[in-house]
Design a binder for these strands. Structure first.
Lengths: 211, 211
DNA sequence: GTAACACTAGAACAGTGTGCAAGTAGAACG
DNA sequence: CGTTCTACTTGCACACTGTTCTAGTGTTAC
């Protein structure tokens, strides 16, 4: 008698890609914290074991999410005529893409897969640096300097829109007797405009490498 | 009869500071992953409840760890005679201190308390920027630009010594047909020298702010 | 001596990722 | 048609996480 009391034999009709897609959707909708195996299983109307069978582990799942999203990143057109402008544009695409899909970017940062995530855009940057005349070691230095800097800005920008609790950020500057000008303390206590700040910083870095 | 069957009444002779100190030692010895409430309790020969009674929660504990370590950060002497050199020196102190105690830095980064952690060194940087003639908004821009950049380098440097598995880092550049020079691909495939790279990047940024 | 307080332990809860063994639908083969 | 074999799905359990509730007891104050 097979009354299917356990439901073990049913076909869910889902494959690896479906799980990755659902996981990606879950992260984009409800954030990194929502990505638990049980939650994803519930979303797919399936048990966690099914996910494990198709995907292997949570780490593999995350890697696939990042890879999948990496392929979806649209390569915006590079703007500008001078070499500096075009490199700047390529660098900012990394920032803009990352900020546009904050949740996935957070996931990539937390799991150390940020390089994999943004790789297509980083290639474009490298191409633009070659077009500017850089090669080899010299190019690598410029490339890394830009990548790491953008990464730092992402880190701070993503954190600051996660914690909007009474601006504890700048309070440390005002509640203390450092020997700073009140004017300076005021400026440091306010929440920064990372977008504009990154623009300035990038221009400074790029100017030293592509001249 | 009080045969102390449950051990509930014994005095452990520990206070809040002892727990924070033990937690800090635990993190420094065995890394961030070792900081679990049960592990710390075992280290103190106590139950988790005792920790909760003294500290409150894991988040509070971590905050105290960061604050405690923040106070222990030695303020190295600023080197250099020109304004640029001295600002550079102050900026590098942030980097060096963070790298010297990687585990705590990782903890601070993961919990979003990096600002609290490095605040004393950031104050020194701000003072040096004022000494260079900067004030208010202008100083804040320079300060943030430097801080965020150093943060980005820390993020990458700390990750790269955590994952030393066959250099999957640069493999993405070689296994693909991007339109790049072999010379460039080679350079990008190698693992970067973050220390030297940061020095260059900092000089570029500082040069644009303090002239 | 007794009552209040400060502290500690035991046990449990809800949640996490993951592994093992059993079960079944559908395809392949006879 | 019946059998076997493979692909998949489930239930259950384990070890671990942070946290809380309840009860117990040494120490102190009255």
């Amino acid at each position: 008698m097979s009354k299917n009391a356990t439901n073990t034999g049913r076909r869910a009709g889902l494959d690896r890609n479906d799980m990755v897609a659902a996981a990606l959707a879950l992260v984009e909708a409800d954030g990194v914290g929502a990505l638990t195996m049980r939650r994803l299983a519930a979303e797919l109307d399936v048990t966690t074991n099914t996910i494990y069978w198709h995907v292997g582990s949570r780490d593999e799942l995350i890697l696939e999410i990042i890879r999948s999203h990496s392929r979806q990143i649209a390569e915006l057109p590079i703007e500008g005529t001078t070499a500096q402008e075009r490199v700047f544009s390529a660098a900012r695409h990394i920032w803009e893409s990352s900020m546009a899909s904050r949740s996935v970017t957070s996931l990539a940062h937390q799991t150390g897969t940020a390089a994999e995530h943004l790789h297509p855009l980083e290639v474009v940057l490298a191409q633009e640096l070659e077009a500017a005349g850089l090669r080899g070691e010299e190019l690598a230095r410029a490339q890394r300097s830009i990548q790491v800097t953008v990464g730092g800005f992402l880190l701070n920008a993503l954190r600051s829109d996660a914690s909007r609790e009474g601006d504890a950020r700048g309070a440390a500057w005002t509640d203390e007797d450092n020997g700073l000008t009140p004017e300076t303390v005021d400026a440091l206590a306010q929440s920064p405009d990372y977008d504009a700040l990154l623009a300035d910083t990038l221009r400074a870095i790029i100017a030293t490498h592509v001249g």
